[in-house]
Amino acid sequence: MPFLLLLAWQLLASGGAIDERLFSSPAHTAHALWMLTTNGTLASNVLVSLRRSAIGLLLGVSTAVALATVSGLWRLGEELVDSTIQMVRTVPVFALTSVFVVWFGLGELSKELLIAMACFFPVYLNVHGGIRNVDRRLVEMAVAMGKGRRQIIRHVVLPGAMPQTLVGLRYSLSISVLALVVAETLNTTSGLGYLMANAQQYLDTDVIFACVVVYCLMGITADLVVRVLEWRTLAWRTGVGNR
């Protein structure tokens, strides 16, 4: 079915039914993609973009996991951290884009922090929820076995929160691509977003579509990464499914 749609689009475009200045055709998009790949512009710009989202993602996810662990495990942590985060959460991150530029300058930092902040919340909420939803009866069992706090956190609480954590990570990865697009629309001189903004000025829809395709591929790859992670760390669940 997707191939049929693609074919229909191509036929309509070459037949003149669609204005190719507004909608590039698959063939032209592929050509633009090929050109960008062979002359090296795509690779260098994608690398810059990947670096941004990777740093932002890493920053956001690691702070989220750390804070969620603190607020999920300790009552004091919950009161200090969770209430604050729940308030900040209501702020739409992308509304802060321009403020971030003012605060952190036009360089990489403002972009990375924007991505980090966008990635933070899904992971935080899911890890926190995951820790809170760990089966009390299992914790009680571990207490009855004479296990200490550390052992319980390591063998019961954290593995128990893992499925939820991965759900959060999955959200975050797709959001990181979204945040990348937003972050790169502002004052960039490199990256996928720059390539796209540049093409926009010349109404080069071929390149715009090529960039969209690359964004899509990044999103799909991100999803694939989490699926592999899920498959590896949640093997015990597939065991249930295979029954």
Partner: peptide, 23 residues
């Protein structure tokens, strides 16, 4: 002291062998 509950209360993310060793 050891206790067995109404439900098995095994750690689903650990294999049977580890669950027993958890004792």
């Amino acid at each position: 002291v050891a206790i067995v509950f109404q439900e098995p209360r095994l750690l689903p993310w650990k294999r049977v062998d580890f669950n027993v060793r958890f004792g």
